[in-house]
Nucleic acid binder design. Structure first.
Lengths: 285, 285
DNA sequence: TCGTCTTACGAGAAGCGTAAGAATT
DNA sequence: AATTCTTACGCTTCTCGTAAGACGA
């Protein structure tokens, strides 16, 4: 239905209050009440329980759909506007944590020499957000990093027709605490480390490890940020192991190369122009 | 924006005419003209060229988004209604071609004995449509078949939060023409057959083969249907090779088991009831 | 000149805000 | 009694249909 109603519903569910949602969205409480009533009438089932305001079962389910749905709508708008827009001389490159490695950085430098009139802004973003920023039109290009089998594509969130090209692959290393018995070894295998405790961090998601290398990988400390220094300190202090791209952690045992750190460049429709030139330079295919 | 405008745009683009679209949708030409104008004003760019009526570049791009977008909207509606609906005693099982093999059929039979009050309709559908039917609410359960590496999940079209469970895996065989030199062999490898001509049919998509086993696999005759008898006849007459699940083509050389025929059961939210019971019986996890 | 899309204008419907009412704490 | 959601009602805005206009073939 009307995306505005969905947005209102999300806001009410998030704030747990009709009046607060109305204030945030610039409506009156009455309008919000009517909008929710419209949604519920359309679906033929209540989405929110009142007093206290909380989503019902059906409402929970509707909420799960809401985010991806609104994103797709924004993505469609952004994508079309991009096709129609004149070639711009400023562009934003969204980069997730660990996504901008030495190879890409070097290519970016060379490309900027070749394209002197192009102003590039690199925008840091959380893990998994780069693709969403590109889809939503807030960035022209995005760099997404992840762990994958060599030359396998990453699993990107589905946000519409984005093009993804491999931009960089480098070996993974296992960050180990100081004095760990395996620290001296040249090549480690994941199989030797399934029973260890692993840091939970967006930089090296445990679920991804389990997907790629089987169960195990017990969870250690949970760190929700993406600061590399913090991660290496936590590992050194023994809070858990983690995988890092080799260039980010020199002098650490390499992981036997069944898995690599892979970076992909994602973008939507790119009309010929500086943006397309930069994309070609960053991810030579 | 408004899904109705998108639907109108799709219709106009498909029919190449404002008046024809108006007739089909029950609007006047004027209304269609205004709706298209609204869409174009919203995006700030023309979507259709007039005389003749055909999509512009931006319009083409918008069309690519339109189908998935409307599907997701329908999926959200259907999913929520399913959660809220009372447990039903009739349900539809959508089955793509080659999806309902002997193991699933046997489980279905046993389940129907255990659930005598449940009326099941098996609805045949084109390859790749089963997931869409389930997402759109036209079927409660869906069976999707495809070629995959053993115990690897299939790649399903993204249509929202569907649950997929492996239901059956069986060996693949290579269907060869009569008197083919390799027909006597017990086990074949795909690598031996990359240079052969392969039937293009939805039952065994060439792109999927190339994805899984490298380039090659030259295209032979294109058959757009999914009739098994037709396929075997075409193969026998030498129009090209194809892969089939072993149970569908007895007495044919087995493919060395790097790839299997895999069937998955997909469904949306299933409140406790007969539908959930049947799902559990069809895909024991 | 005919067919087709666009624009102008009036009627109806839909949505929002104000304000009063109901329900829960 | 106070807070919060719902409902009633008037007003504005939007959308559709009719009808006239513009543009090509």
């Amino acid at each position: 239905m009307d995306p505005n109603l969905v947005r209102t519903f999300m806001t009410v569910a998030r704030l747990g209050s009709f009046s607060a949602a109305a204030a945030e969205l610039g409506y009156t409480q009455s309008a919000v009440s009517q909008q929710i009533a419209t949604l519920e009438a359309d679906l033929g089932t209540p989405l929110l329980s009142r007093r206290p305001v909380a989503p019902t079962g059906a409402g929970e389910r509707r909420l799960q759909h809401a985010g991806p749905l609104l994103l797709r709508i924004r993505a469609a708008r952004a994508d079309v506007r991009r096709v129609a827009a004149a070639p711009a001389h400023r562009l934003t490159l969204a980069a997730g944590p660990l996504a901008l490695g030495p190879a890409v950085a070097a290519r970016l430098a060379r490309a900027r020499v070749r394209l002197p009139r192009l102003t590039v802004t690199v925008r840091a973003c959380a893990a998994g957000e780069a693709a969403r920023l590109v889809a939503g039109g807030e960035a022209e290009l995005g760099l997404v990093a992840g762990i994958a089998a060599p030359s396998d594509p990453l699993r990107l969130p589905d946000v519409g027709p984005l093009t993804a090209t491999g931009a960089e692959e480098e070996p993974l290393v296992v960050a180990l605490p100081d004095g760990h018995p395996l620290a001296g070894r040249a090549g480690l295998r994941l199989a030797d480390l399934v029973d260890a405790r692993w840091l939970r961090t967006p930089l090296c998601p445990l679920e991804r490890l389990r997907d790629l290398a089987g169960d195990g990988f017990r969870a250690g400390l949970h760190y929700t940020g993406d600061d590399l220094r913090t991660v290496t300190s936590l590992v050194a202090a023994g809070h858990g192991l983690t995988l890092l791209p080799a260039s980010a952690a020199p002098g650490v045992p390499l992981l036997a190369p069944r898995l690599v750190h892979r970076v992909e460049l994602v973008h939507g429709a790119l009309p010929p122009g500086p943006a397309a030139d930069l994309a070609a330079a960053l991810a030579p295919s």
